[in-house]
């Protein structure tokens, strides 16, 4: 029986180009999947968003998630926190729709081969996660970058998660949603790293969890040192001799390039994939979207919101009570009066 799949990614308009590239690859390999763009943003002036012209089927906005005190909740998060936080309420919502499975992919991932073996896995498992790293590193620098980093940021990379909409999958979705609504923070001192660190609990809290150790999934700079990336005789791309399913093009830009060079070394196909991806993203870029645009980056009066403002508001219940809409000029004025602007 064909599985009814909803696949979504979460992003703001500055990542629309990347999301388009992901959705195009999903359309190509899984034309029957229902593709959802989960957006935490407002349409920039000058941009017309016409779903019929986009490679996805539906947009779900932050307003559609039934979040209490939405403005205050949004304000408590920076862009990374909020885009990961909304994954929880949406995945829970999606389990209650008419689908058999829900798959999340980060907007900067891209499929190169169909995820059919994953669907097969979801016949017997309810939750599928991909670890950052599949085997121990040897070099000291690699241990620091690739082994130690997941110790605080989370063992599993939440650029991908797949669940059944019933059973343990549904139970996971509800738990994750509740945690992310309250604790999706980048706060290393408190042991939190957005939506990702939470999932270290998953293999214990839930049954029917499959830890996918297939090197063809979620290949990225942090694990490419352990994966041999090559073009095979059929013109397909392989990671350690299995088909590459999807690549995680994390940190498009100089930092991503540095990490890729550090760990891909002389694997030329990796650089060819990146080159191709960069071109695709450039082609998918709408010039009408201002650089680094995010509707919730500023107060309503246009002044930029600092992370310290968000943290203060997050900590102080009195401020939350007084400024129900912290984006308002009132809160900006208060911060200024307190010498915190």
């Amino acid at each position: 029986m064909t599985m009814r799949v909803l696949c979504f990614t979460s992003f703001t308009f500055s990542y629309l180009n990347r999301a388009r590239v992901l959705f195009q690859s999903l359309r190509r390999h899984h034309p029957d999947w229902h593709l959802v763009a989960l957006m935490t943003d407002r349409i920039p002036a000058g941009l017309t968003l016409n779903i019929a012209d986009e490679p996805f089927d539906e947009v779900v906005w932050q307003d559609d998630l039934g979040i209490d005190n939405l403005a205050g909740w949004l304000f408590q998060h920076d862009i990374v926190e909020v885009c990961t936080a909304v994954k929880g309420p949406f995945i829970a919502q999606a389990t209650r729709r008419n689908f058999d499975a829900v798959i999340y992919l980060d907007p900067d991932t891209c499929l190169f081969n169909p995820l059919t073996p994953l669907l097969d896995k979801l016949q017997t498992s309810d939750i599928v996660l991909t670890p950052h790293l599949l085997e121990p590193e040897e070099a000291r620098a690699a241990i620091i970058d690739n082994e130690i980093c997941p110790l605080w940021a989370g063992i599993y990379n939440l650029g991908f998660v797949a669940i059944r909409t019933t059973g343990e999958g549904a139970r996971f979705a509800d738990w994750w949603a509740r945690r992310l609504l309250e604790f999706c923070h980048d706060d290393r001192d408190k042991g939190l790293f957005v939506d990702q660190k939470w999932c270290d609990h998953v293999p214990v809290f839930f049954d029917k969890v499959h830890i996918l150790k297939d090197p063809g999934y979620n290949t990225a700079s942090w694990n490419v040192s352990q994966r041999r990336i090559a073009i095979d005789g059929d013109g397909n791309v392989r990671a350690n001799d299995v088909l590459l399913r999807f690549w995680h093009f994390t940190k498009l830009g100089p930092l991503g390039d540095t990490m890729t060079r550090r760990y891909a070394r002389d694997q030329i196909v990796v650089y060819e994939l990146w080159r191709w991806y960069r071109e695709q993203v450039a082609k998918a870029t709408s010039p009408a979207i201002p650089d680094r645009y995010w509707a919730f980056a500023n107060f309503e009066n246009g002044e930029p919101i600092k992370r310290s403002h968000r943290l203060l508001y997050r900590e102080r219940k009195d401020l939350q009570a007084h400024f129900a809409n912290p984006f308002s000029p009132d809160f900006a004025a208060w911060l200024k009066a307190e010498g915190l602007a």
Binding site: F112, I231, D234, G235, N236, V237, V269, E272, L273, R275, W276
Partner: peptide, 11 residues
């Protein structure tokens, strides 16, 4: 030969 429709050709 990079056949049409393959990743090798696409890249």
């Amino acid at each position: 030969y990079p056949r049409p429709g393959t990743i090798a050709r696409e890249l």
